[in-house]
């Protein structure tokens, strides 16, 4: 189990361009395929991970690892997702520091960034509303409340520049009122 956890999150770590949000749906897909975590449970894990400081993907890895194999599982999964970045950054820091100015590298990122954007947009849709299999199931109080709070948060962040932690606390209070 520990080895499986390590391999899965190592793979996720290798393609985690764009940080945490972009790989959330990939993590969900992989752990659901393995039957480790159900849809509802993943929603919980994602919410708890988003509340804590640090990358949402790394935090999810920690919690999924903990759920599968306790503290050793949490450690192994976290090491797995962080290790690829650590190795690659050491390589880059040692040898290729000016690589990012080459045209080939820049044009690769020119094509990669829209993909990462798409992955983050998809993560928002999937994480917010992806647990319903049919469109009809979306029409309920639950979805309405989520949209309402989500809209309020966007307003607070964009208009009033609230700190993310304040936004999260306020939405927890709003959740108690609405749901």
């Amino acid at each position: 189990m520990l080895w499986e956890l390590f391999v899965l999150f190592f793979k996720v770590g290798c393609i985690a361009f764009g940080g945490g949000y972009a790989v959330m749906s990939m993590i969900q897909r992989e752990v659901e395929n393995k039957g480790w975590v159900g849809v509802e449970q993943f929603q919980e894990i994602g919410s708890l991970s988003g509340m804590a400081p640090g990358s949402i993907a790394t935090n999810s890895a920690t919690l999924i690892g903990y759920g599968q194999a306790g503290i050793p599982g949490a450690l192994v999964a976290t090491v797995g997702i962080v290790l690829p970045s650590l190795l690659l950054i050491m390589l880059l820091a040692a040898f290729f520091i000016k690589l990012q100015h080459r045209l080939g590298v820049r044009s690769a990122f020119y094509g990669l960034r829209p993909i990462v954007t798409a992955l983050i947009v998809y993560a928002a849709i999937n994480f917010g509303f992806g647990h319903h299999s049919k469109i009809g199931e979306l029409l309920n109080w639950q979805t309405f409340g989520t949209l309402l709070i989500c809209g309020g948060c966007l307003f607070a962040i964009v208009k009033y520049k609230w700190h993310p932690f304040a936004v999260i606390l306020a939405s927890a209070a709003a959740g108690i009122v609405i749901f």
């Binding site: 949000y21 929603q43 409340g145 936004v167 999260i168 939405s171």
Partner: peptide, 11 residues
């Protein structure tokens, strides 16, 4: 569930 909605907003 409220937090869940705010994480969607952060994303």
């Amino acid at each position: 569930q409220g937090v869940h909605a705010s994480v969607v907003a952060l994303i």
